[in-house]
Amino acid sequence: MGALHTAPRLETERLILRAWRAEDVEPFIAMMAEPEVAAFLTTTQQPLDRQAAWSALALILGHWALRGHGLFAVEEKQTGAFIGRFGAWAPEGRAEPELGWGLARAAWGKGYAVEAARAAGDWIFAALAPPRLSSFIHAANARSQALAARLGFRAEAETYHAGAPHQIWRVAKADWPR
């Protein structure tokens, strides 16, 4: 099936970051219903039902339509399976783009997050040329904090975001690993 929008295709050793396709809709809905994924990825910290997950995906695709960039669908090369969404997140009101990440539970523990996040971050710095990237991370989300640290981000501030305490992590272009 064809892409639902225009986006570059990024390849890493084991992953493909690409435009969303119709066949990604069901695995995305399934991913957003996983309690461990939803705990730090949704504004309610609760799993999303089908309708809410669809709306979240409509927002991701609308972000591509309005901004010309956004969160890529991530595919595992070996299986072709959809495993998550990584990329730029810059809705109205954000001073700098966020590097967003989110991986389906079955794809955890394989080093995919750092692999996909590096590719997405490389692309954002090259294509959008922001002076730095941010990441809003739930105060209790130790896994994401570890990933951010590994990517060169530093925790710079605390804020209340999506109804919960969050840390704002940032990385300048000069500190981005290459």
Partner: peptide, 18 residues
């Protein structure tokens, strides 16, 4: 507010894509 309007308009655009 502006940020909510942006999300609402993005949702319309996302509906076209999906």
């Amino acid at each position: 507010p502006r940020d909510a309007s942006w999300r609402a308009m993005a949702s319309l655009a996302g509906s076209w894509a999906l």
